[in-house]
Design a protein around this nucleic acid. Structure first.
Length: 268
DNA sequence: ATGGTCGCCAAGCGA
C-alpha cells in the first residue's frame, strides 16, 4: 500500500497535476490539505475516472482536507472524536473538532490533518494552534490506549519544523511561528505518545524540505521547511519499507508550494 | 533543469 500526503494549495487549480501524479506514482491513498473549495466544489470526477473514491471536509467556507483512495474508504470521521462538527474559530472549545478528516483505507486509519498555521506568536491563532495540537495528542494517545496494535497514520501539513535542520535558516524565522519551542514540544508530545516520523529514516540530513515559499526563488535555492509529515503508530511504522519526499512535483508549471510525501507499507 | 508569489475572487488577506 502506497500512502501519500500533499498540501495541494487549491485542488481546483491543481486537479490535473494531482491526478496525473496519483496515476504515475501508483498511489493508493492520498490525503490532501488546503483544498480551498467547499464540499460541493470539490472536483470528484477526475479522481473517479482513475478509480479513486474521495471524501472531502470543508473546515470553513472555502478551505478543507480530503482523502482519495482506490482501495476503498470506510468509517469516515470528521474531528478527532468522529463528531461531525467543525469550526475555524481560534477557540479552545473547537480545538478538537476542526481541520481533521479520518478514514479507514485498507485497514489503516488515515487522518488528513491541517494543523492551524498560527500566524504570529502573539496572536490568538497561535494559542489555538497549541491547544489544537494538545487536543490531538490527547485523542491520538487514547486511540493507542484502547488498541496498542491499531495501524494509524497521522499525515498532513503540521506547520511545524521540529528541528533547526528542518528550516533553511533558523535565524530568518526567529520570533516567528513554526520553530518555537512550544510548537516543537507539542509535536514531540505526539511522537512521545507513540506516533513516529516514518519518513525521516529514508530522507536523512539537513536541508531536506517539503515546502518552499513561492517568493524569492526559494525553491531553486532550496530555501524551504520540512513541515509535512507522516506519523505512524507502532504497528504502522514497522510496516514501512520506503518513503520519499517527491521534490519533482514542486517543479514545473503551476506547482503547489508543497511537495507530496509518501510511504510504502507491506501487508500486515 | 527549477526562475523572481499565489489563490481566493475581484480588494486585500492568508499562507
Amino acid at each position: 500500500m502506497r500512502l501519500a500526503t500533499w498540501n495541494v494549495n487549491s485542488i481546483r487549480t491543481r486537479v490535473d497535476r494531482v491526478t496525473d501524479w496519483l496515476a504515475r506514482a501508483d498511489v493508493d491513498v492520498l490525503a490532501m490539505q488546503e483544498t480551498k473549495c467547499s464540499d460541493e466544489q470539490f472536483p470528484t470526477m477526475p479522481f473517479a475516472a482513475l478509480g479513486y473514491d474521495v471524501v472531502h471536509c470543508g473546515f470553513n467556507q472555502w478551505n478543507g482536507v480530503a482523502i482519495a483512495s482506490r482501495i476503498g474508504i470506510d468509517d469516515v470521521a470528521v474531528g478527532f472524536d468522529g463528531q461531525p462538527t467543525w469550526s475555524d474559530k481560534p477557540d479552545v472549545e473547537a480545538a478538537a473538532e476542526a481541520r481533521a478528516l479520518g478514514a479507514t483505507c485498507g485497514g489503516v486509519r488515515v487522518w488528513s490533518l491541517y494543523i492551524p498555521n498560527g500566524r504570529t506568536v502573539d496572536s490568538a491563532h497561535y494559542v489555538y494552534k497549541l491547544q489544537w495540537l494538545a487536543a490531538l495528542r490527547e485523542t491520538a494517545a487514547s486511540w493507542l490506549a484502547d488498541d496498542p496494535s491499531a495501524p494509524i497514520a497521522l499525515v498532513g501539513d503540521w506547520n511545524i519544523a521540529p528541528t533547526d535542520d528542518d528550516v533553511w535558516d533558523v535565524e530568518f524565522y526567529r520570533g516567528s511561528t513554526h520553530i518555537t519551542e512550544a510548537e516543537r514540544a507539542a509535536f514531540g508530545a505526539i511522537v512521545d505518545a507513540g506516533f513516529s516520523d516514518v519518513v525521516r529514516p529514508f530522507t536523512p540530513g539537513p536541508a531536506v524540505f517539503t515546502y518552499w515559499d513561492y517568493t524569492q526563488l526559494r525553491f531553486p535555492k532550496n530555501r524551504g521547511m520540512r513541515i509535512d509529515f507522516i506519523l505512524g503508530s507502532p504497528t504502522l511504522a514497522e510496516r514501512v519499507t520506503h518513503a520519499e519526499i517527491v521534490r519533482a512535483e514542486r517543479k514545473g508549471k503551476q506547482p503547489s508550494d508543497h511537495a507530496p510525501v509518501l510511504v510504502d507499507l507491506v501487508d500486515p
